[in-house]
Computed example of a mutant assay.
Amino acid sequence: MNFDIVDTRRFFRNRFAYYVVNKDSHGTGVRDGAPLTLRDLCRILESDSEPFPRRYDPDMRKLCNHEYLTWFREERTYGDVARLLSRLLAAEDGLLPHPGGRWVHGVLKGDRLSDFWLRSDEEIEITLADLE
């Protein structure tokens, strides 16, 4: 399925808002007609340089926890949000330890995500099965 970038960003915002409230990266309660998960959208938008809307700053504060001031130092992009979410999802999946310390700074200053942070749900399931 190919969606234009405007729709893709809208799907991302929908799933982002849903994730912040429900901690569900699959977006099972989002009814926008797209079969994409939050992880899928993070893969698509990891390099997107479009500014992320400021109206989501309260949600970003929740997401970044104690390191939220790092987020507010400059204008951020969809790609920045995608990388932060991918890091959190990797921790939830058990692929990385839960973030602590200066994790927001580390993710935002990194050039690109490690590949396994952005694997599809099916690839994650296979990886987790291999770890067991």
Rank of each mutant, 00 (worst) to 15 (best):
N2W: 14
N2A: 08
V6H: 15
V6S: 14
T8M: 10
R10G: 09
F11Y: 12
R13V: 15
F16I: 08
A17E: 10
Y18P: 01
Y18G: 06
Y19K: 02
K23E: 13
H26T: 11
H26D: 12
V30R: 01
D32R: 02
G33M: 10
P35E: 07
D40V: 03
L41W: 00
C42T: 02
E46L: 10
S47F: 07
D48Q: 02
E50F: 13
F52S: 00
F52P: 05
P53T: 03
R54L: 08
R55C: 10
D59V: 11
C64K: 10
H66Y: 02
H66C: 09
Y68V: 11
E74R: 13
E74Q: 08
E75D: 04
Y78R: 02
V81T: 01
A82G: 03
L85E: 02
S86V: 04
A90M: 06
A90G: 06
E92P: 11
D93W: 14
L96R: 11
P97S: 03
P99T: 05
G100N: 01
R102N: 12
R102T: 14
W103R: 08
W103A: 04
V104E: 06
V104L: 07
V107D: 05
G110D: 13
D111W: 04
S114A: 11
S114Y: 10
L118H: 09
S120Q: 05
D121C: 08
I124P: 02
E125T: 14
I126W: 11
T127E: 13
T127W: 06
L128P: 05
L128I: 15
